[in-house]
């Protein structure tokens, strides 16, 4: 079975996607698109709506409103045609524990109509590529967590789907396996597979993805390239002071004395200071010493995507909380 090319330029196109479970608004009017060959990250805290979104995209949940197009196919009118084009790696390794690794892969190939010879050849190829050849004839139930994850990914790509959904692929596995899986994901993408990756490991998304969407409380609060997001962080200056004592008191006093700075205590022995402009260290060191603490070290902190994530989602979450409170007050009135 050869990979089917995506005729349309957009691999995934989502407009106004909405889903409510009872009183909970799981996904609220989400819009985004993923281009062919792109590795797109979908980041958010637990309960943000990541899995609900992915379930709607792959046909395991029905949207209340909105449209989903996979490779130009409208998923509401032709869900099975769209499912033929996607591979899914769920957040749990859900293969059959009583079947061997090889049998599991062959079974998954058969579900997509692959001929026996093709699926057996592809299963062997993937077992080899994922370093599982030795375990091919062992039952899946006896695999380690890392091996289970790898075989679940292999099952998702067995039929060579042009679009792959990966839900938390490295959660709960050891460092070596996670690194290997990240390399496999990068290789798959390099070979042309469009990948939609949900994760709450920000560093993983930063390393793998070209574009990232932040989702909080069912809403996308930011979509941009990793480069642009990092540029936003690069514009800020952050310095961390290692101090002898009074971290919390110092952060509070510094915030009052230097209104343009964001001061945060990192325990009792460190304070971080951030500003959109450059931070002059001299006055800060003197200020700390005047308040009875010694400064052991002052170093510039390299900005990370995590900082951007916290800042963007934090601001938006607070705004949404205010919106929700306003709506509740309005409702009460």
């Amino acid at each position: 079975m050869n990979r089917q090319p995506i005729k349309d330029n957009g691999a995934i196109d989502v407009r106004g996607l909405t889903k409510r479970f009872g009183a909970v608004q799981a996904v609220a009017g989400v819009d985004f698109d993923v281009r062919e060959g792109e590795l797109f990250g979908f980041l958010g805290p637990n309960g943000a709506g990541k899995t609900t979104t992915i379930n709607m995209l792959v046909g395991l949940a029905r949207p209340d409103a909105g449209t989903i197009r996979i490779a130009g196919i409208d998923c509401s009118t032709r869900p099975k045609a769209a499912q033929h084009l996607v591979g899914v790696v769920p957040d749990v390794s859900n293969l059959y524990p009583e079947l061997t690794g090889f049998s599991n892969l062959c079974f998954c190939g058969a579900l997509y109509g692959m001929a026996r010879r093709d699926r057996q050849a592809r299963a062997r190829e993937l077992l080899h590529a994922f370093g599982l050849s030795q375990a091919a004839d062992r039952k899946f139930g006896g695999y380690s967590k890392g091996m289970k994850r790898k075989l679940t990914i292999a099952a998702g790509i067995l039929h060579q789907p042009p679009v792959l959904f990966l839900d938390e692929p490295t959660t709960g596995i050891d460092v070596a396996s996670a690194r290997q899986i990240r390399q496999l994901i990068a290789d798959l993408n390099a070979k042309g597979t469009t990948i939609f990756l949900t994760t709450h490991y920000i560093e993983e998304a930063q390393r793998l993805c070209r574009r990232i969407a932040f989702i909080v409380q069912g809403r996308i609060v930011r979509i941009d390239t990793v480069e642009n997001l990092m540029r936003q962080a690069d514009g800020r200056c952050a310095v961390q002071f290692a101090v002898s004592r009074h971290g919390a008191m110092l952060a509070e006093a510094m915030a009052a004395a230097f209104p343009g700075l964001e001061c945060r205590a990192l325990g009792e022995d460190a304070v971080s200071v951030a500003s959109p402009e450059s931070v002059h260290v001299g006055p800060l060191v003197r200020f700390i010493e005047d308040h009875g603490a010694e400064v052991f070290e002052a170093r510039r902190i390299r900005p990370s995507l995590e900082e951007v994530f916290v800042r963007v989602t934090g601001i938006e979450a607070a705004a949404m909380r205010q919106d929700a409170e306003r709506a509740r007050v309005g409702g009460d009135l």
């Binding site: 792959v58 395991l60 099975k80 899914v88 769920p90 859900n94 059959y96 579900l111 997509y112 099952a155």
Partner: peptide, 14 residues
């Protein structure tokens, strides 16, 4: 319960 049925529901089978 084990999630294996989801795999079948995800397949392009009516």
């Amino acid at each position: 319960k084990s999630g294996a049925l989801d795999r079948l529901l995800l397949a392009p089978i009516p």
